[in-house]
């Protein structure tokens, strides 16, 4: 019973829900069983958000636990480090290098860790992506999501057309073309 577990981490409001929807749709495209566990409510208001996607022949539990993640897609540096214990030793992390200060840092009670890149690299194979710069070059910060999905697709592999199909089904109709462009940019990074 082979299952692929993808962890999505970030800060509430960064678009984890869209990303998990695209991955869920991909699993459907591939004819797999899939479960996606989301965060709604209070945790969405700028807090840490962890979303789980598990696909395979038969998926029972919707959550990813310690030692369970094959891949992590993270939108924020600190949030990647926070969930690194959920990774498998041979897992891979795709990380948007954006830093968002949490409130304890903003009010000066704690410091934002300075060595996140080194810490992550010493633990798990990690790909660093400056998705925000790429998105800015496309004219809208909101394309960070599909850029990251593109990068994840190039690392996870599989039929690229199926990935693109899944993106198409999940983004607003009027921005399909731009999103596919963003996906390609990420894929070729």
């Amino acid at each position: 019973m082979s299952i692929t577990s993808v962890l999505i981490t970030g800060v509430g409001g960064q678009g984890s829900l869209l990303t998990s929807r695209i991955l869920g749709t991909l699993a459907l495209e591939l004819g797999m069983d899939v479960k996606v566990s989301e965060v709604h409510g209070m945790a969405q208001r700028g807090g840490s958000v962890v979303t789980y996607v598990r696909m395979g022949d038969e998926v029972a539990s919707p959550i990813i636990e310690e030692g369970g993640a094959d891949y992590m897609l993270s939108f924020e540096m600190l949030e990647a480090l926070r969930s690194v214990n959920l990774m498998k030793k041979n897992g891979k992390i795709v990380l948007n290098v954006q830093e968002i200060d949490p409130m304890p840092v903003i009010i000066g009670v704690q410091e934002y860790p300075k060595d996140i890149k080194q810490q992550l690299k010493s633990k798990v194979e990690t790909y660093f992506v400056d998705a925000l710069s790429v998105a800015d070059s496309l004219g809208d910060a909101r394309y960070v999501n599909t850029i990251m999905i593109g990068k994840l697709a190039s690392i996870m592999g599989g039929d690229k057309e199926k990935w693109i199909n899944s993106v198409k089904q999940c983004v607003p109709e009027k921005s399909v073309e731009k999103n596919i462009l963003a996906f390609e940019k990420g894929y070729n990074l």
Partner: peptide
């Protein structure tokens, strides 16, 4: 079941307005 050691003492990220 843990395979990768977690990071300790990280700043929490509570939800905010």
């Amino acid at each position: 079941a843990a395979e990768v050691e977690g990071a300790e003492g990280l700043p929490m990220r509570p939800p905010a307005l």
